[in-house]
Design a protein around this nucleic acid. Structure first.
Lengths: 105, 105
DNA sequence: GGAGCACATTCCCTTGCGGTTATATAACTC
DNA sequence: GAGTTATATAACCGCAAGGGAATGTGCTCC
């Protein structure tokens, strides 16, 4: 699974994630919140799905979309390489956590 | 400063940041490493500069590019809202660090 | 089983972005 | 000051991505 930067580059898609962070949502709700057409919303949801950032639960004609944070965790891992540049005094702690990530237990 | 997602969506630009993570570099070095044309590299560097992700130090005809991590820190702050979704047992620690961020001291 | 609802897919258009080639700028060298 | 080096800018091209309108799909309910 590649880093989802290009998927997250789209503001509407980040908005969707923010909304799903509160609770699962129907496509209709998301469409309304985003101010897009329904097909527009569906297209973004497809991209998010294929990137593994959301999953769907079908309920009759409705589809509940919910968050899948794994790709964000990978993004976090990428960021970890840079984190020491701004954390300052937390440096030692960060290194500790990074080490744990390599060898959890 | 908006979140630099769109800037980081470009693989060559992430590559540049990775290279600058080791040490500052000249445009020529970066061009060689990236396998791009020199103008191509310069265009990416301009985007990175305008996003605040790199800064330049001029040295005669040469320009040393170096990392500026502030925008990455903002990205990290954005990610923080989602982090509890995958950290599990580190949850309490995360919340503690987030609180510190609001009220450092 | 036909109508209506919720959502996905298709088609088409437009815009923006990454890439290259060619050219400009600015500093050093002799 | 002419040539060379290092980088930036300009001009142009091709393509992919976002947007909407129209249409397809599948489920429910009467």
């Amino acid at each position: 699974m590649p880093l989802p930067f290009d998927v997250l580059a789209e503001p509407s898609r980040r908005r969707i994630l923010d909304l799903l962070l509160e609770r699962p949502r129907l496509v209709g709700e998301l469409t309304e919140q985003l101010g897009l057409s329904q097909p527009g919303t569906s297209k973004h949801l497809r991209v998010l799905r294929e990137a593994g950032l959301v999953r769907v639960r079908q309920d009759a004609q409705r589809r509940w979309y919910e968050l899948r944070p794994e790709p964000l965790a990978e993004l976090d891992a990428w960021l970890a390489h840079y984190r020491h540049l701004w954390t300052g005094s937390l440096d030692a702690l960060e290194r500790h956590l990074d080490a744990m990530e390599d060898d959890p237990r």
